[in-house]
Design a binder for these strands. Structure first.
Lengths: 342, 342
DNA sequence: CTGAAAGCGCTTACAG
DNA sequence: CTGAAAGCGCTTACAG
């Protein structure tokens, strides 16, 4: 075997025409059984592998989907990607993953390479501040679905957690424990999903007439750690902290270790986003678990419908999150901290 | 703008020939400055994006690299991928990531799709039991580099942590604390990197004439947890546990929580593979940190040399790991446990 | 049911 | 320095 065999060589080997080989490889039923066998045997003998690039050029689609995420090291995105890859793969699609690092420039550049590679569609988690250029960068003849970070004016179908409700339920849980002063630590209100979490939080606090303490702590773990450390040092600090995403949670746990504050006695902690290691901490950290599988499934469905030019009934999907109660949010007894302080 | 503009349309717009457009877009210097400008302006006006599929078909390479890993949710692999993606991207390559889930069948299938997609090369972490079919699946005209899980008979260049030395150093550290009975918990000796870690461990133990206690605990966190839980219940259990990879570490920490054993007083813990959350546990867990960045850099270099048909001087690279000492491995005082038991 | 031929959108000798 | 033409390896009307 010298070089890769072409379809032409298979045709010669099987003593049929090039078009016939193509047809049997594409499952066209109009080929006589006997010739089909000859073709299959020839493919086998030559160890033939079809050149998808040539097929793609001719067919004018590549069976490739671009996935655009901020960062593959964030396990929330990694979980989404893993699920999407399986879904796509099962449907005969392959996936190209690119990361933006929250950089609008890089986002635009990566979208460009995806378009040059002629992806059939894109599934994107917009990077910070990129929602403006998204529509022009992606274009309007490109099937696209937005996940997780949805903006009000996105022209594409979308699927995300019902953030307002999730934050509302989480806050209600904290309130039910007797907390009256709760801080919500968020990365930045410039992200729509964060804004929604703020809305849910503030609504629950307003209804309970409790003190809503909103803290903007930054996009990185280090920034969050610093900011939350100083929050913990405030004389009138909250009795419960609700962290609005996984990076902030990481910062909060670090800050808690620095401060020596006891969980849940001195500070209750509730995390948005659930992870394996939250269960390993002592006490384990309560969390809002986002419906990652469901988001991936719906996103793929939305994508697949667009690829097949089928119409989409409900193009904006919100999936319910789940509150998981662990040791970090139990047994707060109201003014317990003050009693201890006496 | 209707449909995507082709290079032909750009040529017409710029009033030059098709070949001239191709030349300026490919940086060919033999085009008069004035015509070059016209072409660039036309590209701009039409918002032209080159069709890479067509270019790839003609050029007979795609500037695409396949990356084959067991699992994207494992942060060790994710970190490798992230680094490799950046390196490749900087060199004008795009990357297709596929996962094997440790399944040889799936590995073979995924390699097949990568070949059909005409990737220029593959960087692979072989899945369990796949090293036999790897050479035949990949073929010998495909540039390939193996990382992390190297087998003795791999015909490709490779880069990995110096596992023997890393395990040796880790074991020496435990011995220096006074431990005489140490268990090494491994996933499976069918993996070459695991075998190497066993060798380093056993060598250090032999030299110290201490009791080497090798435990095979399985590939999943759940299996490891079960197996280590029962280890912890043995009357004559070891005073230190060395976990040979990150999944086993996860199982060990779960088992430790179940057992209520105190770290480091009742059991010292040293982990192969370092992670953010190991620092957040109380006490923090000591770890062997693999040189992820260096592995990625060397792997890319090896790949790039093959792509450019340059010769490779040292095709089998071993990079040194680093021992990071934290609270889980301090102050063991020899027979301390027995004293407490009196 | 079968094969000859056109064409997908580029790159690349080649002749001028 | 420029353009006309061949060709990358397929798929797909089309005529038979």
């Amino acid at each position: 075997m010298r070089g890769k065999p072409t379809m032409n060589e298979v045709a010669r080997e099987a003593k049929v025409s090039l078009g016939t080989v193509s047809k049997v490889l594409n499952g066209d039923a109009t080929v006589a059984a006997e010739r089909r066998e000859r073709v299959l045997a020839a493919c086998d003998r030559l160890n033939y592998q079809r050149n998808q690039i040539a097929a793609s050029l001719r067919r004018r689609h590549t069976h490739t989907i671009g996935i655009i995420i901020p960062d593959i090291l964030n396990t929330f995105y990694a979980a989404l990607v893993e699920k999407l890859e399986n879904l796509a793969s099962a449907a005969g699609y392959t996936v190209i993953i690119v990361t933006t690092g929250e950089d609008p420039q890089r986002t635009q550049a990566r979208i460009g390479v995806l378009k040059q590679r002629q992806v059939d569609g894109m599934i994107v988690i917009p990077s910070l501040d990129s929602s403006g250029l998204l529509a022009t960068a992606v274009g309007d003849d490109m099937p696209c679905v937005i996940i997780d970070r949805i903006a009000a004016n996105d022209p594409y179908p979308s699927v995300a957690t019902d953030n307002v409700d999730a934050a509302y339920q989480g806050t209600r849980h904290l309130l039910s424990l007797g907390h009256r002063h709760i801080a919500l630590a968020v990365n930045t209100p410039r992200l729509w999903n964060t804004q929604e979490r703020i809305i849910g939080f503030e609504q629950a606090m307003r209804e309970a007439q409790a003190k809503a303490d909103l803290r903007i702590v930054g996009m990185t773990v280090e920034e969050a750690q610093l900011s939350i450390s100083s929050l913990f040092r405030e004389p009138d600090r909250p009795t419960a902290l609700f962290t609005a995403n996984n990076l902030v949670t990481l910062g909060a746990v670090r800050a808690q270790i620095d401060s020596g504050l006891k969980i849940p006695d001195e500070i209750s902690l509730l995390a948005f986003d659930d992870f394996e290691w939250l269960k390993l901490l002592q006490p384990a950290i309560s969390a809002i678990q986002q419906p990652v599988d469901q988001i991936a499934v719906e996103a793929w469905r939305l994508m697949f419908h667009q690829l097949s030019k089928r119409s989409i009934a409900a193009p904006h999907i919100r999936a319910a999150a789940q509150l998981i109660i662990r040791g970090s949010t139990v047994g707060y007894v109201g003014a317990g901290r003050k009693v201890v302080a006496l």
